[in-house]
Simulated assay, not measured.
Amino acid sequence: MADIVRALFLYRPRSVLGGKTMGDTIKSTDNIVSCSNNGQHPLIYINLKSGTGRCQYCGQKFEKVSLESHAAKQASNA
């Protein structure tokens, strides 16, 4: 029974987990990103049309960046 309760706890939305969040914001040039926290919660797709998004399960933050700004940053790091 304890395994069932633990499994149910892992699949609770982030708001039920007290707002725990992961580390850094993941930047993407795509409009839609996916998150599963390496299989720790169900695979979901997050729309970044508004510029940012957050996973409802693990709290991971995502940010949409333009191709130009991404290319400029890559060039400056090279």
Score class of each variant (00 low, 15 high):
S15Q: 10
V33R: 09
V16M: 15
P13L: 07
N37P: 02
I32K: 11
G23M: 07
A7I: 00
V16K: 13
Y57P: 01
A72D: 14
F9C: 08
D3G: 03
L67H: 12
L43Y: 02
G59C: 01
A2M: 11
S50L: 13
Y45A: 09
I32G: 04
N31C: 07
G19L: 08
N38T: 03
A75D: 14
I4S: 15
G23I: 01
T21N: 00
S36P: 00
S15N: 13
L10K: 11
T52Y: 04
S36T: 08
F62G: 06
K64L: 15
I46P: 04
A78I: 01
L8A: 10
N37W: 02
L43W: 00
V16W: 15
T25Q: 08
I4G: 12
V65E: 11
S28N: 14
L10R: 10
E63G: 13
T25W: 05
S66Q: 12
C55F: 00
T25Y: 04
S15I: 05
I32F: 07
T21S: 04
V5Y: 11
T21D: 02
G51Q: 13
T25H: 07
S50N: 14
C35D: 08
L43G: 00
Q74D: 10
Y57C: 01
N38C: 03
C55W: 00
P13E: 14
D3E: 13
R54I: 03
I4L: 15
M22S: 08
Q60S: 04
Q56N: 06
R6K: 12
N37M: 04
S34T: 08
N37F: 07
K20R: 08
K27F: 10
P13V: 06
N37R: 02
D24M: 09
G59T: 01
I32R: 09
S76F: 00
K64G: 10
G39Q: 01
Y45H: 13
L17S: 03
S66F: 10
A2P: 01
S50C: 12
R14H: 02
T25I: 14
S76T: 06
T21E: 06
R6P: 02
L67E: 15
Q60D: 03
S76M: 04
K20T: 00
Q40V: 00
M1G: 10
I44N: 02
Q56S: 07
A72I: 06
A72M: 11
G19M: 04
M1A: 13
R12Q: 14
S28C: 09
F62C: 06
G23S: 11
H41D: 00
